[in-house]
Design a protein around this nucleic acid. Structure first.
Length: 213
DNA sequence: ATGACGATTTACT
DNA sequence: GTAAATCGTCATA
């Protein structure tokens, strides 16, 4: 079992966001079941200058503290009174930059994920492309909550990233704007989201950007 | 102490 | 497309 090293994480957020595409997020659930998914969509949050980042103006609070940690630290936060989202910290110590994991293609532990994801009203299980196609969905499916913030993913025994076998072809990577960002001035239109072209597991696809890619 | 809001998801019209 | 759900966090006082 090989995993991403400190060195791999210790780069700027946009670069890490693109390099994570195709890598595998692994989570060993509390019951011991191994859950895993291929990372297919990421966003970069670029620190004190980035008006959309929790670390804008170097805001350092109990919640955002993990963002100031070393590359490879997890940053999980709670929002809307019911959802969790997971980031992987990039850069160097005290540089509050991170990559939001927005979607996975589930590869291991699908049964467990279907259990973790709330069943539909009619009782039918969610289809596979609805298990991890969003930042809060993937946390729910993988059993990741705020208790898992601030972990060192280079050594933790229940949460880590395994490197991709090969880099995706550049023309298979779609670049577009971040989702759910509307009060962030100039940063609203920054091209800081990346995803694998054509993947049905992505949260929000951008047909125009896919044509360009 | 208080109020406004959120890096979302789901169900419903 | 629109709206509700639901509460921790953060800024202001």
């Amino acid at each position: 079992m090989t995993r991403l090293s400190r060195r791999s994480y210790s780069i700027d957020a946009p670069t890490l966001a693109q390099r994570l595409l195709g890598a595998t997020l692994v989570r060993v659930a509390d019951n011991g079941v191994r859950l895993a998914g291929r990372i297919v969509e990421t966003e970069a949050y670029c620190g004190p200058e980035d008006q959309a980042a929790h670390s804008y103006k170097a805001r350092r609070t109990e919640r955002t503290e993990p963002m100031f940690g070393v590359g490879g630290t997890s940053y999980v936060y709670f929002t809307y009174g019911m959802h969790h989202c997971m980031n992987i910290v990039a850069g160097r110590l005290d540089e509050p930059v991170a990559v939001l994991l927005r979607a996975l293609e589930p590869t291991e532990g699908l049964e467990e994920m279907r259990t973790n994801r709330r069943p539909r009203r009619d009782g039918q299980p969610k289809p596979d492309d609805d298990l991890c196609s969003g930042p809060a969905k993937l946390c729910q499916a993988m059993g990741i909550d705020r208790l898992m913030t601030g972990l060192d993913m280079t050594t933790h025994d229940r949460l880590w990233v395994e490197p991709r076998a090969r880099a995706p072809r550049p023309d298979q990577i779609v670049t577009t704007t971040r989702v759910g960002i509307d009060n962030a001035g100039d940063w609203v239109d920054a091209p800081l989201r990346w995803y694998l072209r054509g993947s049905p597991h992505v949260s929000v696809r951008d047909p125009e950007a896919e044509r360009r890619a």
